[in-house]
Design a protein around this nucleic acid. Structure first.
Lengths: 193, 193
DNA sequence: ATTATCTATAGATCTATAGATAATGC
DNA sequence: ATTATCTATAGATCTATAGATAATGC
């Protein structure tokens, strides 16, 4: 206890990172502050030295979770390949079994959509911004003459990615779950290739 | 108090219906039993005369919410028009502002996806079944030679509908929200028409 | 007599706060 | 001396249960 300011920053980031993982996994209401602090190797009493309220942690955790997913997508997108090939890589990664099952580290645009819709302005703004980033990235990669058409196709493609992963996680029929991911991927690649 | 068995059934349905609305709106963890019972004009003590546990109510509420959405979709789908026109009606209804804003009565395949993924087997089975129903309906309406191709296109279309509404609800930029709905609808109608 | 619902409450858990403690940094 | 974290606890809320009450239905 009573460590340096640098230590406090590390603690702060540890709390936010833990929350970003657990909130994606169990939902924003699925875990309490005491358990989060414990997982961050702190006691619950210290929480309010880092945040004014639970809401503030939710906002920071949503920002962190969205950044996570954004970085994972950017990593795939940086592959030195033609746009169409990069697009295929992105679609396959997003609609992979690893992403479906890796809730804690996956894209928060899907896993936190419902929670964010009910959340505070800061969380919603972060979400809005990340959707904008994904749309710009996709629009650049999509083969189409007009910019307006690329934008519309990017929106439909992102919606397909988000919806397919949402449903693939909710159904309890493994065969159907895989079919949802596979067919959505095939259709997207056929449409945008 | 102490009414007939018929009255009890009515109370039961009132509780489930209330939960189906509030769970879609606020999430499964967003409202407690006491408030739900109060909204159903009952006191919280009576809850366990109707359900063995909260989980059981969640299962029944998910079933009820999915049925709701299914009936609304079936109503639109029963329009006496050619398949392509019915498909356009469905897409426009699902991606309407009314559906985006009508969480309490809207399609639970979108609004409860994340909650159901974390929920019990009964809730997940009901969700799985409803996804199956939507896919069969869409596959019938889609113009394509082969059955396998229609099925894959139905999956991509349903995913697009679910993802677009999810994101349109989460962003806090009204213009972007409307663009998401409009572009997804336009693309779907262009692809499937 | 049976039973659907009510009042009252137990026990757990949640957010938030107060004050103590043990490090850091002047 | 300052401060990051700890222990302890207040007060609200949550699920679940026990026993009382007031209807229904024989």
């Amino acid at each position: 206890m009573g460590h340096s300011k640098a230590e406090k920053d590390k603690s702060h980031r540890r709390i936010v990172k833990t929350a970003a993982a657990r909130f994606r996994e169990r939902g924003v209401d699925g875990i309490g502050l005491a358990d989060l602090m414990k997982e961050a190797d702190l006691t619950h009493g210290g929480f309010y030295g880092h945040f004014d309220s639970r809401e503030e942690l939710v906002a920071e955790a949503v920002e962190c979770a969205l950044r996570d997913g954004g970085e994972a997508v950017a990593a795939v997108a940086s592959a030195k390949q033609p746009p169409a090939a990069v697009l295929r890589l992105l679609v396959d990664a997003y609609l992979s079994l690893a992403h479906r099952d890796g809730l804690a580290t996956g894209c928060a645009v899907t896993s936190m959509a419902n929670d964010v819709a009910r959340s505070n302005a800061r969380a919603r703004s972060a979400y809005t911004k990340q959707v904008g980033i994904y749309l710009e990235l996709l629009a650049k990669l999509i083969a189409a003459d007009k910019r307006k058409s690329r934008r519309a196709k990017a929106i439909a493609a992102l919606a397909t990615l988000v919806g397919a992963v949402s449903m693939a996680r909710a159904v309890n029929d493994e065969k159907l779950s895989r079919e949802l991911l596979k067919s959505a991927a095939d259709e997207l690649k056929a449409q945008l290739g």
